[in-house]
């Protein structure tokens, strides 16, 4: 009995200690974003929203935020579309070398982002394509396409197949089946793939850093802010990014996973 209690005591102590370790940095980040002073370090002088005002007044940060959102939405949309079509083609038709095609589509997942970025950099340099948000977007589609394909392909079961067959018997053509039957039935996994891509693209640094020049995404802009050392403004933008990611997560949770868990 004593042993049992000791184990239980140890468990709770460990749980609390680990939560402290995990949550401490974020707590400090958010707390000192309200620091009434020029340095985000103790002691905490008082509460102010001045740093948030500075973030919203910073044209470069706001432009980077907008760039990040457009790249994230654009690249995720394209990755989902390409992934969905490929998943449909590969699961509904018998194609030659389909195993090889699947391996090819999944291959970018096995290579680090740095290598993908370097490869694209070499090609863009060689072909004279100028670096811009478009090149960043291309890189993000490359990393998210395998993810979207895998998620959507995995959810294409026989259950939908019968409904598709029924629609065909009733005279629907290939495109109508895809648009009216398959896509709506697979919507939860398509949305999951889309939002997952969105979070990956939103947070991605190395590809955005190497493949952009004048217009940059938010992580790259924050990166250049870091050069000025500790600054409550960096805390403020960091906390805002955290808030945005939480909202995205909440959307994902309510829209996708809640719906999926219902029968």
């Amino acid at each position: 009995m004593l042993r049992h209690r000791l184990l239980s005591l140890f468990s709770w102590t460990y749980l609390i200690a680990m939560f402290g370790f995990i949550l401490l940095p974020v707590a400090v980040l958010v707390l000192f974003s309200f620091q009434d002073g020029t340095l985000p370090i103790p002691p905490f002088n008082g509460f102010t929203l001045k740093w948030y005002a500075e973030v919203f007044a910073d044209q470069k940060l706001m432009a980077a935020l907008q760039n990040s959102l457009s790249v994230a939405f654009g690249s995720s949309l394209l990755a989902c579309l390409l992934g969905f079509f490929a998943a449909y083609g590969l699961s509904r038709y018998r194609l030659p070398a389909s195993a090889l095609q699947r391996v090819l589509l999944m291959a970018p997942m096995t290579v680090s982002y740095l290598i993908i970025a370097l490869g694209l950099l070499v090609v863009f340099n060689w072909s004279g394509i100028r670096l811009s948000l478009w090149t960043v977007g291309i890189g993000h589609v490359v990393i998210n396409l395998p993810l979207c394909f895998a998620i959507i392909y995995a959810s294409m079961g026989d259950h939908q197949k019968n409904t598709e067959r029924a629609a065909r018997d009733l005279g629907a053509n290939g495109f109508q089946v895809l648009y009216l039957i398959t896509a709506p039935m697979l919507m939860p996994s398509i949305l999951a793939a889309f939002f997952l891509s969105l979070t990956f693209s939103w947070d991605e640094f190395i590809i955005s850093f190497l493949l952009s020049r004048f217009d940059v995404t938010l992580p790259v802009e924050i990166w250049s802010l870091l050069r000025s050392g500790l600054n409550p403004k960096t805390n403020a933008i960091g906390s805002l990014v955290f808030l945005l990611s939480m909202i995205l997560l909440l959307v994902l949770e309510t829209l996708v996973f809640r719906r999926r868990s219902k029968p």
Binding site: F85, A86, L90, I115, I116, L120, V122, V141
Partner: peptide
């Protein structure tokens, strides 16, 4: 028609760049 766009994308922006690198 469904599979080729994704394959082309992966070839053009992953396989070819990797070979170049």
């Amino acid at each position: 028609f469904y599979v080729v766009p994704a394959l082309l994308w992966t070839m053009a922006f992953f396989v070819v760049p990797f070979a170049f690198m």
